[in-house]
Design a protein around this nucleic acid. Structure first.
Lengths: 115, 115
DNA sequence: TCATTTGTTACTAAATTGTAGAGTAAATAA
DNA sequence: TTATTTACTCTACAATTTAGTAACAAATGA
């Protein structure tokens, strides 16, 4: 696998980082993944995926400050890089293109305008 | 990983089977993958992915007849099962939902109506 | 100080994806 | 009719991604 490949789990995590913004730290991301996908995940899988994507240059991270909540230790906040955005966009465009070629889905695409 | 997970490569291959219809046999699928994605793949990776998805019940296959071309041996033709379609659809819906929540992409979604 | 909560890091296991190459059958050329 | 070329399938195993689990760290509250 070349260094620019984006796995399915990676892609979803990357999108969640974008969606969560300031709140994009591992624990929250894993939680959000479960809520949105209805699928279980583990904090470990989330962490290794985040680290891998940071190494690939799709994400960057920095430690935030501790909050004054019980157990509120410092969080590592992730943000998408320009490269990460580009890769996400390419992935989306490619998929849109395939869906539009598949008769069973092509018609459904129109209804998307309603989103 | 549970038996219903769909990897990124798997998903694209599944879509290509749908797009190719009668022409959905391993060699052609791999060829089409390279054309459409601009990314290289290998026939071996394609085979193992097709086999795995058949085992999962997303695809079924049967041998076609030999064609009258030089080297035109029998092909194994793949078709998507109902389960395969459902899984594809779920994957698509999930992604659409995420994209619509990500500000950087949400606006682009509207322009999709033009597809 | 000690238990509890919210986090991270590190390590191991399982599933997906990639590589290499052998094997088969039909069409053509000699 | 034998050899060669072309179009394909299939297997074994290696590399990468994803999952699971355990151990550690810092802040709060008793």
């Amino acid at each position: 696998m070349k260094e620019t490949r984006l796995g399915e789990f990676e892609e979803v995590i990357l999108l969640l980082v974008g969606i969560l913004g300031e709140e994009a730290y591992a624990f929250k991301i894993a939680e959000e993944y479960e809520t949105q996908s209805g699928r279980a995940t583990s904090i470990g899988a989330t962490h290794s995926t985040l680290d891998r994507m940071e190494a690939k240059g799709f994400l960057k991270s920095e430690m935030g400050n501790a909050t004054a909540e019980r157990g509120g230790r410092r969080k590592r906040i992730f943000t998408i890089t320009a490269l990460g955005k580009r890769v996400l966009k390419e992935s989306r465009d490619f998929r849109m293109s395939l869906w539009s070629q598949y008769p069973a889905f092509a018609d459904k695409l129109n209804y998307l305008g309603a989103l």
